[in-house]
Design a protein around this nucleic acid. Structure first.
Length: 550
RNA sequence: GCGCCCAUAGCUCAAUGGAUAGAGUGUCGGCCUGCGAAGCCGAAGAUCCAGGUUCGAUUCCUGGUGGGCGCACCA
């Protein structure tokens, strides 16, 4: 990981430079890829913010600093550039060494960069078990699953959970709806309740009910429907390549007594009080609370609200040893954030230990026409349906490219039409193409020779196209860290697009398998091997396959 | 009414306060008798409006305009 070494050394030199000039709080050094029009690899903008503190011209600082940074091992050249950058060019030897390390152990490339390993519980999707998963759930699933994979690669403990709301009033509503469908199937005139679930899927479940269902109570219908639907959701996630470490049932919180214990815990901390026959959480009294009013924990009927078991659930996560909780919610729940934060504080935990990632909602279109997303009305576009039509890879990459904050329109017609033009194929194509080159090389050089990349003469890599690829490979670990910092996989998806975009010109200009020049062939094969490995690793972190043939 | 989020190329999206705002797709013009044309090369094409802070603003602040979402003893 050449860039990480260079960044570390350069930061130390910058710190020393600042100390020599008596700077008290020097700005942190940052490193970015140099823009296309400068002949350098890494851009260091540090002189610009430093100039303000020192009241000096940024370009002068850059010039002085460049002299220092030129000494960093692996740096071939360091030059000042207006208005106040230091541009670094890495040595070919360093880039070659980096490629060699990628080839040696691709699975460890970018691994273990976490300086302080975090213990994070990520909860996402958590859809009600009252229907199949909607295509919009694919967004949260992609965000969460990819993030978990990336965090683990970096060396963090990341644990994925899905909270199943299998308690409360929904069960009866669902039961009555299924019962109606069941009776309809027997020719009776039994309307689904107005506020029930009107989706087609209940007909399918009704058709497969056992005989004894004739004597079931609505609750039994409800329990049955939920277990079927939960299994269906679990299959949805599996088909989408999303694995959860635990499907946490809300009902467990009741059977274990955790709900009651949490209430007592909050009372004991002086955070809960009685008013108007209900029990309230004194959120306004919590230090730093941004919630504007108190919230009901137990209704005057004696029934807990949704809020209380939810607090119990989050308490349980802390009790299991996680120090950070991250929930991924759709924007329709953003109003719930201050409340949850207040609850976390009421539990006596640091407010920073809980974080909500809010993603904007997915708006479905069929051409120009908006598609309703209601579970109660008939029209319902399931995740499984879309995955079956456009493919898991295309779907996941599509979601992975976007930031959580983007309000996205998902045109089902376009998604189908574009399935062969989806950006994911642009990336996968490079992988397949390289695999094909290796087959070609094996034919000419023999299988063993083509696969022995470790001793390749990498100093043969000298064209701009080859160099651009080597640099791009070097940025991969830093991209994973960006994903962590932004809590989003989208920088990785964008990176893979860029890496693929650099490979094709290389392919056009640099012939890899060339019997007349076996040395260059071997070097280029090694480069191809490195690109293939990083693409495969990157796609895997996004839950996307890297096919050998397309 | 109050709060959160968004507005960048025809379309879908990127861009830790920094250099000439990047991709994909679409349009136009070229490129397959050597490793995959799901590709390459070239062209045209963008920061909603008005102020402000800054050496420097797509980015930060204020005010508009347009849109999404939310403001329960629902979950």
């Amino acid at each position: 990981m050449i860039l990480e070494r260079v960044k570390k050394e350069a930061s130390a030199l910058i710190g020393a430079w600042a100390a020599r000039r008596g700077m008290k709080d020097p700005p942190a050094a940052s490193f970015a890829p140099a823009p296309a029009h400068v002949a350098a690899d890494v851009s260091v903008p540090w002189p610009l913010p430093a100039a303000k503190a020192l009241k000096r011209k940024p370009l002068e600082i850059a010039a002085e600093l460049a002299a220092d940074l030129a000494r960093v091992p692996g740096v071939e050249r360091a030059e000042p550039a207006p208005p106040g950058f230091v541009n670094l060019r890495l040595s070919m030897a360093a880039l070659a060494e980096n490629l060699a390390s990628v080839l040696k152990d691709p699975g460890r490339y970018g691994a273990g960069l976490a300086e302080k390993p975090r213990s994070i519980n990520l909860e996402y999707v958590s859809a009600n078990p009252t229907g199949p998963l909607h295509v919009a759930s694919g967004r949260a699933a992609t965000l969460g699953d990819s993030l978990v994979r990336i965090l683990r690669r970096l060396g963090h403990k990341a644990w994925a959970e899905y909270y199943v709301n299998d308690a409360g009033g929904r069960m009866e509503k669902l039961g009555l709806s299924l019962k109606a469908r069941y009776e309809q199937a027997k020719g009776k005139d039994a309307p689904v309740p107005e506020d029930g679930y009107h989706g087609e899927y209940l007909n399918d479940i009704a058709a497969k009910l056992p005989e004894e269902a004739a004597r079931w109570t609505p609750e039994q219908f409800g329990r049955y429907a939920m277990s079927v639907l939960l299994e269906s959701q679990q299959l949805d996630m599996e088909l989408f390549g999303v694995r959860f470490d635990r499907w946490f049932l809300e009902s467990e919180l009741y059977t274990s007594g955790a709900v009651q214990k949490t209430l007592e815990f909050l009372r004991g901390r002086g955070m809960a009080y009685d008013k108007d026959g209900a029990v309230w959480l004194g959120t306004h009294a919590v230090e730093g609370s941004e919630d504007d009013k108190d919230r009901v924990l137990v209704k005057s009927t004696g029934q807990p609200t949704y809020f209380l078991p939810d607090i119990a659930y989050h308490k349980d996560k802390f009790d299991r040893g996680f120090t950070e909780l991250i929930d991924i919610w759709g924007a329709d729940h953003h109003g719930y954030v201050p409340r949850m934060k207040a609850a976390i504080a009421a539990l006596g935990k640091a407010p920073e230990s809980f974080q909500a990632i809010i993603h904007q909602l997915v708006h479905l279109f069929r051409g120009q026409e908006a598609v309703k997303m209601s579970k109660r009305s008939g029209e319902f576009v399931t995740l499984r349906e879309v995955v079956a039509e456009v493919g898991r890879d295309a779907c996941r990459f599509f979601f992975a490219l976007r930031t959580a904050n983007s309000h996205m329109n998902f045109d089902l017609e376009l998604a189908k039409k574009q399935s062969s033009e989806n950006p994911v194929y642009y990336v996968q194509y490079v992988h397949a193409r390289i695999c094909s080159i290796f087959h070609e090389a094996e034919k000419l050089m023999g299988e063993k020779a083509a696969q022995r990349l470790d001793a390749a003469p990498l100093d043969r890599l000298a064209t701009p196209e080859e160099r651009a690829l080597l640099i791009k490979l070097a940025w991969f670990p830093a991209i994973l860290q960006t994903c962590e910092a932004e809590l989003s996989p989208h920088p990785l998806a964008g990176y893979l697009m860029e890496l693929a975009g650099l490979y094709h010109p290389f392919y056009e200009k640099c012939r890899v398998v060339e019997p007349k020049d076996p040395e260059t062939s071997r070097a280029r094969l090694a480069l191809c091997g490195g690109v293939r490995a990083v693409i495969a690793q990157g796609l895997d972190l996004l839950g996307v396959s890297a096919p050998e043939k397309m």
